[in-house]
Design a protein around this nucleic acid. Structure first.
Length: 991
RNA sequence: GCUCAAGUGGCGGAAUUGGUAGACGCGCUGGAUUCAAAAUCCAGUUCUUCGGAGUGCGGGUUCGAUUCCCGCCUUGAGUACCA
């Protein structure tokens, strides 16, 4: 019987689905284990071979844990709201609900054929109202909460109100906006309802505020900081500008310290890779220093600055404000007004990207105003400059040119004095920015102190003056939560007199309304503005027609939707009890599953999803909803599988005069490109002549040939992607296929070497449709089977590493599966019987058990594939037919190649699925050898090996080795200085 | 610039309480089988001037270093006027 993998795989996939083999129960005597994948965006392109890598790894671990006797939860779902899903819908001109549904079908089919052990009964979709009901619910919980810095947790806004009514806000220490005036209890009760709401909004964990946001006109929406890379949008690479807009924000900054503590002080709670922790650490960006308040001369205004170097306060020679700083207009003198306004005008025009691009250009303007040094009372000129960011610290800095290179450059540029406050340090060329080896000088009471002592002393003196205090600043900004898009969760919010009101939770979900035009707009009007039925009736508690809005009982609803990360910040808990329509999840379920034990996904989510999810989890922990404040105990980042792109080279003319000149298209083999391109990437003259000839030969382009000859046209090579399916393993291009694919090159001249072989160049890069290097798993499954695909993806290399895909190599693991099948099934049926296993059989089995178990525990899935191959080869060579060996071997293979394992398991007469069979235990006694080939080396160089019993003592080994005639031959009568013996390992004779 | 990770055959990679470097697979070479091909099986495959040399480069510790230490180089990732 042959190994018919397609039949076997279809058979068992059907069986597992019908028998709900992998359905997890919330009640079990077994210990629990929760294995989770980052759920996919169901994009239109479907899966490529890179996508399942993490899913295969988690599936191996989940199946292994079942064999080990755990009650395993291994769910899957779809992150179906958000920008990618909507962009695809826009591109294809269909409604996102339809494309999403179709894409999910494709994904499900592709996932099913790989044989994952998902519990699909718990599936969630973030775009499903029964799911986003709870996303809206959490939003309301955040709105009804504030962060109490005294208790260091989120508390109900009700407690805040009662504090205000009894004591006012002076005693409150909250994470909140910094523009809140102090008020007493009686003032609070005298405030109007609107005023009270306005103040409370500044304390809430999700709040509405006018802030500087990242506006992306091309996507028609605002973006959070983590959605911007190098000044352009992560999705599509569109330009992003700063803009003031009224938006919902999440007060994640309140949790900055706890998010950091989770990384650094509670290492056991968060078994994440150091590099990922590092990314989050940098993103949170804690810096410890002081806030110093500067008085403005002849004015009531005071400007606070944040500094990490209060020890250098006597080195201040000027102050710099961000151009957007709110006091700029107030303090600028009449004389300087024009200059300052012109400068502000010029800086706001520049996009974020331009600003980042020329960091080196120094620009600024003098406001004409002076601040007063807190200690010396000397006047300090106040400048504005765009090297100071409005969004960090207080948007103002005390400039110490001798200790900070940027201040130094600014001072040099504008001829501002650079006082030196460091003892014996030369600052004539550059600033001295180091905190080490400094002694402060010319600084009154700080003279002679080092950085640490001076910092402490400076803060103490500032506190006495009442002009400063120690302060910690975080780079982490509050996260903008509104998107001017259609395909997202609607906010459960309506507006009364401009103040946001929450819809009561029993009326959730507020479902996404139908709109005719769901396209985003460049001006930022949300598409929900087009909805006809989008008003809240407070009496009937219903969403009704906009025409009925009367601002008495019927009010307008929020038009923005939530960002992509809203739905992914709590889904891992929802899986625990995904059908519950009374609660987000029952306490019973969450106290059983607690948290994700193993989470697998890409590291690109380090500053987005993985940070926001930790934030929500901590918030839910404060509310007493979850028992653990970190949602994922162990996290593994699978590396990306890269594609091997192929490129061809087109000769591109660079016309100087007449751009409409017709010419012969020339496509050049990579061999020729290499040959005729000089070091400066220019085509050499020999090749140029060839091109002229080609153009002359072609009747329509004689003119071009002449122009090249006259030096009026230059040519260069342009590399372009070609679909990898037209290229063979020797990098040769199939020209007929290529011409059919790209008809515009039908009449092109293909220039090759004499052999006529057209070669392409290769490049390893991210798999993507636009690079034509995508490999589809469907074809692989069809040709080699899911088990081969699973084994090969693991065999490619370490899970966490980036690695290129190469389909050719799959024959190796596929060949192994065929051999493995042959070990069990011969031409005349089953090869397995009740023969007693030999010592060698047992040795092979037990060392395989040991290795595979260790590999899985260490996530070294690549090496255990090799282990299986070795075991298979050994047992084949041993002609092993013993059931006692071959049956447990199937359980070892089952997590990796579940279909073939299940099939052979049943053929051996088992009636139950292999998936719950207990993992075999290895016995050391079969692994112990009685003798070993000792390498005998002289001065560290291996000379020969010698077989010795393993139970010999060091002295006995030495005796035996010295008596050996080969040893004597090497020694040539000399006596060795020393003999080093490591029992069981090596003998080294030194002398 | 700063932070982190990594550099081993033609390729993917294996080996670390310091102990025979190159497991396993791809590719390649030769052979068997076949009318032929595919498939399958067997043998070989780090380089070499056959003395040796060899885990990015240069040092160090050690009887012994891919593994530990110091200094460089290269690549990748994160971040970027963060005061």
């Amino acid at each position: 019987m042959q190994y018919h993998f397609n039949d076997i795989e279809a058979k068992w996939q059907k069986y597992w689905a019908e028998h709900q083999t992998f359905k997890a129960s919330n009640h079990s005597d077994k210990p629990k284990y929760y294995v989770l994948d980052m759920f996919p965006y169901p994009s239109g392109a479907g899966l490529h071979v890179g996508h399942p890598l993490g899913y295969i790894a988690s599936d191996i671990y989940a199946r292994y844990k079942r064999h080990k006797g755990f009650n395993v939860l291994h769910p899957q779902g779809y992150d179906s709201f958000g920008l990618p899903a909507e962009q695809y819908a826009i591109q294809t001109g269909q409604h996102p609900a339809l494309t999403t549904e179709e894409n999910i079908k494709t994904y499900r089919r592709q996932l099913d054929q790989i044989g994952f052990s998902f519990d699909w009964s718990r599936e969630v979709r973030t775009s499903d109202p029964s799911y986003y009901k709870w996303t809206q619910w959490i939003f309301i919980q955040l709105f009804e909460s504030w962060y109490n810095n005294k208790t260091n947790k989120a508390e109900s806004v009700e407690t805040l109100k009662s504090i205000f009514s009894s004591d006012g806000n002076a005693s409150v220490n909250a994470a909140c906006d910094n523009d809140i005036p102090t008020f007493s209890a009686s003032e609070w009760s005298d405030f109007s309802s609107e005023k009270q709401q306005e103040i409370l909004l500044k304390y809430r964990l999700t709040y509405l505020a006018e802030t500087e946001v990242n506006w992306c006109a091309a996507l028609g929406t605002v973006l959070a900081n983590d959605e911007i890379i190098n000044g352009v949008s992560e999705r599509g690479g569109h330009p992003v500008v700063r803009k003031k807009m009224t938006q919902w924000s999440m007060r994640i900054s309140a949790y900055a310290e706890r998010l950091l503590n989770g990384i650094d002080y509670n290492r056991e709670a968060l078994e994440w890779t150091e590099s990922l922790k590092e990314i989050q650490r940098n993103w949170i960006g804690k810096s410890v220093g002081a806030e110093v308040e500067f008085r403005i001369q002849n004015s009531e205004f005071r400007i606070p600055v944040f500094t990490t170097r209060p020890d250098t306060i006597f080195g201040v020679s000027f102050m710099t404000l961000a151009p957007e700083h709110e006091l700029v207009a107030e303090i600028t003198t009449q004389d300087q007004k024009n200059e300052v306004e012109a400068y502000i005008e010029a800086t706001t025009k520049r996009s974020e990207r331009d600003r980042m691009a020329d960091v080196k250009t120094i620009s600024g303007a003098f406001t004409g105003a002076y601040a007063e040094h807190p200690f010396t009372k000397e006047p300090i000129p106040i400048w504005i400059g765009d090297y100071v960011l409005a969004g960090y610290g207080t948007g103002a800095v005390m400039s110490v040119p001798c200790g900070d290179q940027r201040d130094y450059d600014f001072a040099k540029h504008f001829n501002i004095p650079i006082p030196n406050i460091f003892k014996d340090v030369d600052i004539s060329e550059e600033a001295y920015g180091s905190k080490d080896n400094v002694v402060i000088a010319n600084s009154d009471f700080l003279n002679g102190l080092d950085y640490k002592k001076a910092t402490k002393k400076a803060i103490a003196e500032l506190e006495i003056l009442g002009q400063g205090k120690g302060k910690t600043n975080y780079r982490l900004r509050d996260a903008v939560f509104s998107r001017q898009r259609y395909w997202g969760e609607p906010f459960p919010v309506y507006y009364v007199n401009g103040m946001p009101q929450m819809i009561e939770t029993q009326h959730l979900p507020i479902t996404l309304p139908e709109v005719e035009k769901y396209l985003p707009t460049e001006t930022g009007e949300p598409p929900l503005g087009n909805a006809n039925v989008w008003a809240w009736d407070t009496k009937q508690c219903l969403v009704i027609s906009n025409e009925l809005i009367d601002h008495k009982t019927i009010f307008p609803l929020e038009l923005n939707t939530m960002p992509g990360w809203a739905g992914s910040s709590q889904y891992f808990n929802r899986y625990m009890d995904s059908h519950n329509d009374q609660e987000i999840f029952s306490q019973e379920a969450v106290n059983y599953w607690k948290q994700v034990d193993l989470y697998i996904g890409g590291s690109e989510h380090a500053t987005g999803h993985l940070l926001y999810a930790r934030f929500w989890q901590k918030f839910m922990f404060d509310l007493g909803l979850v028992p653990v404040d970190e949602f994922a105990k162990k996290l593994i980042n699978q590396g990306m599988i890269l594609g091997t792109s192929a490129k061809f080279y087109e000769l591109m003319p660079r016309f100087e005069h007449d751009s409409k000149v017709d010419y012969q298209i020339v496509i050049v083999s990579f061999e020729i490109v290499k040959k005729y391109l000089n070091n400066d990437n220019e085509i050499n003259t020999e090749f140029k002549k060839k091109i002229i000839q080609i153009q002359f030969d072609h009747k329509i382009s004689k003119k071009v040939g002449k122009l090249i000859g006259d030096g009026k046209i230059e040519f260069g090579f342009m590399d372009r992607h070609v679909d990898v399916s037209f290229v063979n393993s020797s990098d040769e291009l199939d020209l007929d296929g290529f011409k059919k694919w790209r008809p515009e090159f039908e009449n092109a001249k293909f220039l090759t070497e004499e052999d006529g072989v057209f070669k392409v160049s290769r490049e390893v890069e991210k798999m993507s449709k636009s690079k034509y290097n995508v490999v589809n798993p469907d074809q692989i499954v069809k040709d080699y089977g899911a088990d081969s695909l699973r084994l090969y993806e693991m065999f490619l290399g370490p899970l966490e590493q980036y690695k290129p895909w190469n389909t050719a190599g799959i024959t190796g693991v596929h060949g192994f599966l065929k051999k493995f099948w042959k070990l069990y099934v011969g031409k005349n049926g089953l090869n397995v019987n009740d023969t007693k296993p030999t010592a060698n059989n047992l040795k092979t089995l037990h060392k395989t058990i040991k290795k595979v178990e260790e590999d899985i525990e260490n996530f070294s899935f690549n090496t255990s594939v090799s282990t299986f191959m070795i075991a298979c080869n050994e047992l084949t060579a041993q002609k092993c037919t013993s059931k006692e060996i071959l049956e447990p071997l199937l359980i070892l293979l089952s997590p990796y190649a579940p279909h073939i394992a299940e099939e052979l398991w049943r053929q051996l007469g088992q009636s139950e699925s292999i998936s719950t069979a207990p993992f075999p235990k290895y016995d050391e006694k079969y692994l112990v050898e009685s003798s070993k080939n000792y390498p005998i080396s002289f001065n560290g160089k291996m000379k020969f090996t010698m077989e010795l019993p393993l139970d010999l003592s060091s002295e006995e080994i030495e005796k035996a080795v010295m008596a050996n005639e080969k040893t004597q031959e090497q020694l040539q009568g000399r006596t060795p200085k020393k003999v080093i013996i490591v029992p069981g390992k090596i003998v080294n004779i030194v002398g």
